[in-house]
Design a protein around this nucleic acid. Structure first.
Lengths: 146, 146
DNA sequence: CAGAATACTTCAAGACTTGAAGCAAGGCTA
DNA sequence: TAGCCTTGCTTCAAGTCTTGAAGTATTCTG
């Protein structure tokens, strides 16, 4: 293989992500959520202005109709509400309900406790963060997140 | 948030993975593959002894019936074959066909070219690899891969 | 040898994803 | 400002993915 380190890093990234999902599966199921719906919840930061469906679709790398489905799942569970964007009445903003904020907080906390990445020291986490942010800044689609 | 670095790292891991998937989607579609089926192909190393369905399920964090489905997808496309494990006739070993090896090689190469992680220098990749392998060694389920 | 365990398959149900078609709102231009 | 194009979202149909329960064949164990 031409780039064994790169191969190992790509594989490790995937493995760690899948393992994290595996470890929080029970907690998600307790709220009738799945990796896909949890990820949608994750990317709605309650301290930021509510994202539109369009913005959510970009964050989750999915298309509009997919996001309609995911949003319905969250709305059916009482975790988010759609409101009309007063600045653009075609657009729907996704707002966490009180329950949505509570569940998001709890599950994010669980994910951070259970992820294998939690074994790293503060210093190692900073190193890792530096490297990953360098990667993200290099990619236009990722740069607008970090 | 109690651990902002950890949060950022978990999010970055996921974002980079999803972005990589996004970037190779075209190449996968060219072989009628999806992220799930490509991942299955990825974890069959042609230079190692062929894995059983059971081993594959562990590697992919999925259950046996799920793996039957994924294997059927790959077998229908002529990329893998099931053979009876001579040492345990309950077990089926997954062997890449010649076409399977070719497609795997091509798509792995594409993934390594397109992943945003490819911007890192050799030195940075080594740093990243060191950190991620430390994470993997700390988790029993991950340790047996790296 | 009988019963339990293992490896896989089948089936049914639900969750996810995509693309095509449609609707309402906003933008543009003659 | 009417007509047309674009945007943001929804609906629908089709296909993919995932799970759990039940079933089959094989192996293990007492």
């Amino acid at each position: 293989m031409a780039a064994p380190e790169l191969t190992a890093v790509v594989a490790a990234t995937h493995d760690i992500w899948m393992r994290t999902n595996d470890l929080i599966g029970q907690a998600l199921a307790g709220h009738r959520l799945t990796p896909a719906t949890f990820q949608a919840l994750w990317v709605i930061d309650p301290d930021e202005p509510p994202p539109s469906m369009k913005v959510m679709a970009e964050r989750l790398y999915c298309n509009a109709s997919n996001l309609t489905f995911i949003t319905n799942q969250l709305a059916d569970r009482g975790l988010v509400e759609r409101i009309v964007d007063p600045d653009n009445r075609r657009s729907r903003l996704l707002v966490l309900t009180a329950e949505g904020r509570r569940v998001r907080d709890e599950l994010v906390r669980t994910a951070l406790e259970k992820t294998p990445l939690a074994v790293l020291s503060d210093d190692e986490l900073r190193q890792l963060s530096t490297l990953l942010h360098r990667v993200m800044r290099s990619d236009p689609a990722l740069a607008q997140r970090s």
